[in-house]
């Protein structure tokens, strides 16, 4: 059974690293909806801590894609929550060897920013601002609403050979949990 043994070896190989390595992962530290005119816009702060392996990949020119997922849910007593909005922003972070720069591209706005350090790049990416989410009129005043934000590393966009590893190695488990908060009008 080569596949099983391969996977097993794989785990054995990676487990100690994942245990001994520094804290890594992505956490949504805070998020809120602000009213801007007639629209609710998202303002969220995310803390990106890349694992050794992810940093290594990035430094070797492999682009990492991050998806900030957003949901607005309407609470219903008898039924399951109704999803009003489901949207996402996709960021691409890539290292440019020639310029020795980190480049972040917001695929939502096609905005490209260059940074000379990784920390600066991640700092820039950690602030999600002015993301128009929902029209104020869409929310009824007597209803209860929730918003949820999650930041996910898009593993399916990794180079193919890396994907099987990424699916099983904790080094690549970089997505955050859902950050849920109640919306108040």
């Amino acid at each position: 059974m080569p596949i099983l043994s391969t996977l097993l070896c794989f785990f054995c190989l990676w487990w100690p690293i994942s245990v001994s390595a520094d804290e890594f992962g992505v956490v949504v530290k805070s998020a809120e909806m602000k009213l801007q005119g007639d629209n609710y816009v998202l303002a969220a702060d995310v803390d990106y801590q890349l694992s050794m392996r992810a940093k290594e990949a990035l430094e070797n020119g492999i682009p990492l894609y991050w998806i900030v997922q957003l949901k607005v849910l309407q609470h219903r007593d008898m039924l399951w929550n109704k999803t009003l909005v489901e949207d996402s922003i996709r960021y691409k972070i890539q290292y440019h060897a020639l310029l020795n720069m980190y480049r972040i591209k917001n695929e939502h706005t096609s905005e490209v920013t260059n940074f000379s350090t990784l920390t600066a790049a991640l700092d820039s990416m950690s602030k999600v601002r002015d993301f128009s989410v929902i029209d104020k009129a869409a929310l009824a005043p007597d209803q209860q609403y929730f918003a949820a934000v999650k930041v996910k590393l898009d593993r399916d966009s990794l180079p193919l050979p890396l994907r099987p590893t990424a699916y099983v190695s904790p080094q690549w488990f970089l997505s955050s949990a859902w950050y849920v908060w109640s919306l108040t009008n």
């Binding site: 080569p2 391969t6 060897a97 050979p161």
Partner: peptide
């Protein structure tokens, strides 16, 4: 350069995934 770097980095993963496919 980037391509080469990437390939170099993915060398083991490449071997692994090819071996995986072959084994499968």
């Amino acid at each position: 350069f980037v391509r080469y770097q990437e390939m170099n980095f993915l060398r083991n993963s490449l071997k692994l995934s090819f071996s995986l496919a072959l084994s499968l």
